[in-house]
């Protein structure tokens, strides 16, 4: 699924990232970074309510390409800047975790485990 499609489905605001053709294949939704760190899939994205720098670090370690903050959360500029430096797109959506994940799942994105 292209990043463009994810932005549309989640009615998301793009905080950084300009390649809307970026291909995302899997997603992981959690506020616990250690859960995410056990998620090893290629071309993944992270949905989370955690807006501290460790969300970006976690995505970086996993070679993820995109983070979407849920529940309308907006991280500080330092966090967005860290993501920009790492080439990770950052989105924010007003949808809560369950709804955001559900919308993406319905549109065909998978978690790597089914």
């Amino acid at each position: 699924m292209k990043l463009r499609e994810i932005v549309e489905l989640l009615d998301a605001q793009v905080l950084c990232g300009d390649d809307m053709d970026l291909e995302i294949q899997t997603a992981c939704g959690t506020d616990m970074m250690s859960d995410a760190l056990a998620f090893i899939e290629d071309q993944g994205m992270l949905l989370t309510g955690l807006i501290n720098p460790q969300s970006v670090r976690t995505a970086e370690m996993l070679d993820m390409r995109c983070i979407c903050f849920v529940r309308g959360k907006v991280p500080g500029d330092d966090v967005v800047e860290l993501a920009r430096q790492r080439g990770i797109a950052v989105l924010t959506t007003r949808y809560r975790m369950f709804s955001a994940c559900g919308k993406l799942y319905q549109a065909g994105l998978r978690g790597g485990d089914c």
Partner: peptide
């Protein structure tokens, strides 16, 4: 610590893996 996104007790086992 859990509010910061860590403390799920998954770190050491994942490191070993």
């Amino acid at each position: 610590v859990r509010a910061l996104g860590f403390g799920a007790g998954m770190g050491l086992p994942n490191m070993k893996k």
